[in-house]
Design a protein around this nucleic acid. Structure first.
Lengths: 197, 197, 197, 197
DNA sequence: GATGAATGAGTCTTCATTCAT
DNA sequence: GATGAATGAAGACTCATTCAT
């Protein structure tokens, strides 16, 4: 089986995922029917069920795929910047996520406020990107500014920051509440710096 | 304590709201049909449409009713404690919300992470409880620890704290992630104190 | 609520049952779709589900209704004949069933060979016709020709005779196997007389 | 003992039949899909259509194969016992069928009550086992206790007895109605003896 | 106001069958 | 021969909404 036939095999699968992603963005997961997805993907309905159990199955897989993207992307951004200070690294990481959401409003719409750390963690735990994830985790969990804190405590704080970030992104980017993301960024990052110091 | 308290007139209307609330808690808003609601409320289907436009209408009204409760309840708690320090008042306010959610897990399930300030504000703007809300807002927006900040900035921070609170409550109370709410409370309040100082 | 509006209420229900019965006869239960039934009944699909859980539900109700008919009809036939001898009564009872099936080939098609006593018994146990059923049971279970047999034994024999009757009817009426019912009747009744003597 | 014994060639064909048999037993013919069959048989869907026209085709072939087994098995049992009396032979024949069904409840489930003589006869008419069948027919049709009866009449009685046997087996073995097969056997054989004498 | 029978469009899901590889 | 991806018609079931009583 050649690499070409292999990719051809998953062509339909890919087009279904892409179509589903687009439908979800336009109408929300809930208001999207299998019918719309297969019509947009130009495949038969049966083909959908050949590759996915149901609508939830596709959305989960899209979700995993997107989450991987956000985190991996953020990690690479931060590494590229060759920062040395812990606070700078963390802010850069958060900023990378914020910017990703700003550029992918529609993904934010899908995730709503539910972009939290354990989700990502559990989803990615068996993925090959794990190595990259573990690296950034190692860096983020070693806060030299708070040497007395246990690793667990630091994780809980980090978790909360990610949750804060997701929630603020959703409100400010999607609804400009309490103001737009450009004005919220300094406020958010100021809060994070205070928390971590 | 009935989840939805209101005047005694319109008994049918009340029983529909109560039934809807219970159905939403059991199966989620989405998986609840008008049929289930009217059966639980022991009214005819047509009666539902006398009082509400559609399912979304009931859920919105329940939402408003619940949000009012959380905020009003928190306000009264704080006032009862006769605290004087700004940080203590804010923490007490947040704690009151956290405790409310802990006692009303199911309401938290409904709100998910979407318990944010503007939601409450816009919903309550014409309500008679407004007076109480304005009072607590006045107190919370006058942070003596950060005299240089504009009122808008303080509101944005406060907004973020409420969002953080909602998100952490959801994760820790509903999913014990990253740990249970009892362990998260000191972490959360520590973060809030740092942010506000 | 007048008797007329009452009957009007069940008008749709009745037309669905009638349509289902006809469809089942033409194509068999299995090859009949809900769509066909509602089209024949000239009602909306939802109306079907308003009155019945699913296709099986209608078929069960038709079944019960038909079974009641067979038994009640047989009982009345026998009573009308004012017979005195046990064998004559039993044969008359069986003959009434056979004749019913002969006139209602299509019902026989539905029942296939599954026309057995306990089925009828359990189905009718709470019905008002019970009284009639109990009367004929009393007569049939008191076989003066076999005084030594226990009531259980007599019931088992009677049960077997009914089963034999159903199976032979199906073969001879529907498939003329091994010959037609007119030729099978003396053979069948001869066998039954021998069994009971 | 594999339920479907045949030559070793066409291994795929055999594994499909075996898989189909197992699926039919578990879920009934109707609720079994080609998909399930080919998955259990570990062959591709296309392979199924190489060997069989459709699901009905397999089930027919399995049916024939099973029916042959019952009859041939009964014949050999009876011959092995070297009985001389007509009644003993007939009862032994019936008993062999009953015992077969008792050991193969699942086959009984497939046949339901439809185990009657003409079915077997027509199905087997061109089979090589015919010779054995004709032998046993010859014996069973020569009832010395009823010398006056025509051959047709005797066949009709025999046919009825087989039908009675199938029906009673189904009720008592599958549903223990009116009682279990062990208690029904003497009742059944008693009835048969009376019929044939 | 209150009822609940009736509607029928909309959705999910299954499955026998085909066919290019 | 063997494969299994792809098809799409067909069927079951739901449910918001209307309306005559």
């Amino acid at each position: 089986m050649s690499a070409i036939s292999q990719s051809q095999k998953n062509q339909k699968r890919q087009s279904i995922m892409q179509a589903a992603y687009e439908c979800f963005l336009h109408n929300g997961i809930h208001k999207t029917s299998i019918d719309e997805i297969v019509k947009r993907a130009n495949v038969a309905k049966g083909t959908f069920y050949h590759y996915f159990k149901d609508k939830n199955d596709v959305s989960q897989q899209i979700f995993v795929s997107l989450s991987k993207k956000v985190i991996t992307n953020a990690y690479r951004e931060v590494r590229r910047q060759q920062l040395t200070d812990y606070l700078d690294i963390t802010i850069a990481f958060v900023d990378s996520i914020v910017e990703f959401f700003r550029r992918n409003k529609l993904m934010l719409k899908l995730l709503e406020r539910n972009f939290s750390w354990p989700l990502i963690e559990s989803r990615l735990s068996q993925a090959p990107e794990d190595e990259e994830l573990r690296e950034i985790m190692e860096i983020l969990l070693n806060n030299p500014y708070q040497p007395g804190r246990s690793r667990d405590e630091v994780f809980q704080i980090l978790f909360s920051i990610i949750a804060l970030c997701g929630s603020v992104c959703y409100s400010s980017i999607m609804q400009s509440e309490p103001t737009d993301i450009d004005h919220m960024k300094p406020v958010l990052y100021g809060m994070i710096r205070k928390i971590l110091q």
